[in-house]
Amino acid sequence: MSRPGRKLGPIADGVSPAHRAWLEPVRARYFAGGLTVSELARKAGWSKSKVSELLRGVGLYPSWELTYGVLHVLGVPAWPMLRLWRAAAFEAHKKPQWVNGCVDRVVITAGSHLPPVDHRAFAEINRGAYTSYAQVFLGVADCGRTVDEVFDVLWLCWEEALSSANVQKFAWRVLRRSVMARAAHIDGHPQLGPAAFNTVALQQAPPGRKFAQIEESLALFRAIGRLPGFQLDVIVFRYLRGLAPHQVADVLGVPHASIRSAERHAKRSLTAIFHPGVNHS
């Protein structure tokens, strides 16, 4: 059944990655909940315009009081949202006094400050691989913050993840989206520059070959960055992070055969670029 009234618009352009990270699952909960914006605003105790702005990411960054009121009505876990909200507030250049003042005015009365046990187990199993992947595209500090963000986002939508056909694949989409939102891009393709300086070939190159090896590595990484997304992920895990095919399959939540196929197609594409005329089967 469709909602009466005007349809909620899309997320505004220019919303930061940290802000979008929590806004998307909150909007998903809103769309699944059946309330109109007016009904949500009334239950949350805020004006319709304020709630509409929050759900679209327009105007000033929302206060924690407003955000908590909305997520309480929608049944969104408060503790991971608080961390996500704080991170996005600082990304929006809010001063610590404002952030802390907002938080101090709200008492969280419902929900555990710890994630569900199965979520914690999932995070423990996958954190290493997620961090390893993120390091290829992001700096060390951004990498850690992004992976922490991903597990908080997964906590927000953990019931949805568990009810999906494949929890691992569901979670990987969240991780990849967060990493790519922060990765540097050229012509729409992610850049793998930081990883180029950690290759075995570069580390073992003789002093006289260092600069040439750097150029070769950067050229190769530019080409890898232009691979289709799934092939890119497979190559990153297989050749930049040294995971076995079955390990990559486990992380991405796909069959082992899919990893072999993607690896084979990626190698053919890269061979065609660097060694035209060579048949790589």
Rank of each mutant, 00 (worst) to 15 (best):
2 S>Y: 04
3 R>T: 07
7 K>S: 12
9 G>E: 09
10 P>M: 02
13 D>G: 15
16 S>R: 11
16 S>F: 05
20 R>F: 05
25 P>H: 05
27 R>Y: 07
28 A>R: 15
29 R>K: 10
29 R>I: 12
30 Y>E: 11
32 A>L: 11
33 G>Y: 08
36 T>L: 06
37 V>E: 13
37 V>G: 13
39 E>D: 12
46 W>Y: 14
49 S>Q: 07
55 L>W: 06
56 R>H: 05
56 R>N: 06
56 R>W: 01
58 V>I: 10
61 Y>H: 03
61 Y>D: 07
62 P>E: 03
65 E>P: 07
65 E>N: 08
70 V>P: 12
72 H>W: 01
72 H>L: 00
72 H>A: 02
73 V>K: 00
75 G>T: 01
76 V>S: 11
79 W>E: 10
84 L>V: 08
89 A>S: 07
90 F>R: 05
104 D>I: 11
108 I>E: 06
108 I>N: 06
113 H>E: 12
125 I>Q: 11
125 I>C: 00
129 A>K: 13
129 A>Y: 10
134 A>H: 04
136 V>C: 15
142 D>C: 04
152 D>H: 12
153 V>P: 02
154 L>R: 00
154 L>G: 03
155 W>Q: 01
159 E>D: 14
160 E>T: 08
160 E>P: 02
164 S>C: 04
165 A>E: 12
172 W>P: 00
176 R>G: 05
180 M>V: 12
181 A>S: 14
182 R>S: 08
185 H>Y: 11
186 I>M: 03
188 G>Y: 13
188 G>K: 02
189 H>Q: 07
190 P>C: 06
197 F>T: 05
198 N>I: 14
200 V>F: 14
205 A>G: 01
218 L>I: 11
219 A>R: 14
222 R>E: 14
224 I>V: 15
224 I>H: 04
226 R>I: 09
227 L>F: 05
228 P>E: 07
229 G>H: 11
230 F>W: 01
231 Q>A: 04
235 I>Q: 06
240 L>Q: 05
240 L>D: 03
248 V>P: 05
248 V>I: 13
250 D>S: 08
253 G>R: 06
254 V>L: 03
254 V>D: 00
255 P>R: 14
258 S>A: 14
263 E>G: 15
265 H>L: 05
266 A>D: 10
269 S>Q: 11
269 S>L: 13
270 L>W: 03
275 H>Y: 13
279 N>I: 15
